[in-house]
Nucleic acid binder design. Structure first.
Lengths: 193, 193
DNA sequence: GCAAAAGTGTTACGCGTACACCCATGG
DNA sequence: CCATGGGTGTACGCGTAACACTTTTGC
């Protein structure tokens, strides 16, 4: 989220965005904007939807082709911009009042992501290079808002044959260390079904 | 398909389309264009994808927000335009060479529709007000290119609870007449799962 | 009577779901 | 030793998939 410095919607938070250059594709533009704002590169990026209601920008007619990205937390370097532009992250269920129709856009993205968790493994793009099975389950539960059975979740996830053990372990705190896993093909979109 | 009278892609077939008016939403524009070309009204319409490659139109930069519609054959009155504009229908697997990136657009629409048949009942929008169970199965098999078991298909379809018998029968040819059905809520998008 | 499509049930298998206890570690 | 999260197997039920014969009609 970036805080708007000017009207309309001054001081409200808005999704990062911008105008498509004449010599870049929609996807290139989305990638460029993403990198400018967050530093993230080579991450999952998907076109979400195009929003074209007549008065969605009170100043003039604007049609927005929305994209969403799945970025591991580690790849974010948003501290850079913190000084110049006010940029901040919000949890999906603690959104402030947003500018334009950006709340609707976020709802659509969230909805899409929840659906995709069920039939694809793109969700793994949200995790770092090495992760524990509990990390994966936590991510699924947080995104979908739905608790899952640990044994069933692991059986399902391992059965997909898309992750493998790194051999490493992660110790954090007063409990048994967890095996670390990695994606077998980090660059595959890996749909299944 | 409309045949292009001018370059670029003169004499090739192209999807109907046009520019969004300043005072209409994307969906209104798609609906307007659809009605102009086919006469269809009040039909299922869904945004497909936005295509924005840099050189997809060799003349100038054009970004297209593609929509697709599901129209029962009976609602088409494309004879009207046949005189003025050359308009024609093609089967999905017998497409001629197309202008621009329109083949890619059709592939995307077909792919989306095949997927939707699995988890929604929008496909029924392609059928007339009254139809037989065999009509439904034929439509599913034609769209998805996949044969289905008659008993399983009927069990599944009737179990969805979205169609009901009209009471009428259809006799056509030297065989047992078939019961006619209709959608219970023709205007519901009726997702399930 | 014969060709052509309509209509109709049962069985088997696989997958998803429910469920509880021991293990390894840090403090 | 205790608190904390990691790790593991089985049984049941439901839904999907496989499968073949009778019925009604027009000619």
């Amino acid at each position: 989220m970036a805080c708007r410095a000017k009207d309309p919607f001054k001081d409200l938070w808005a999704l990062p965005g911008g105008f498509v250059g004449i010599e870049e594709s929609l996807e290139e533009c989305a990638n460029r904007k993403l990198t400018e704002k967050t530093g993230a590169q080579n991450v999952y990026l998907e076109q979400l939807y195009s929003f074209g209601a007549i008065n969605r920008d009170p100043r003039e007619r604007v049609i927005s082709v929305a994209y969403f990205s799945l970025v591991p937390f580690e790849k974010l370097t948003f501290e850079k911009q913190a000084a110049t532009e006010k940029t901040q992250w919000y949890a999906i269920h603690q959104l402030p009042t947003l500018a334009f129709d950006h709340r609707q856009i976020i709802r659509a993205a969230h909805h899409r992501l929840v659906a995709k968790l069920e039939y694809s493994t793109v969700g793994l793009s949200l995790l770092p290079d090495a992760f524990t099975l509990s990390h994966v389950q936590d991510m699924y539960e947080i995104v979908s808002g739905k608790a899952r059975d640990k044994r069933n979740f692991r059986k399902w996830l391992l059965g997909l044959n898309v992750i493998e053990e790194t051999g490493g372990m992660q110790s954090d705190g007063a409990h048994r260390p967890a095996k670390l896993y990695r994606r077998k093909n980090p660059n595959e979109t890996s749909l299944f079904r």
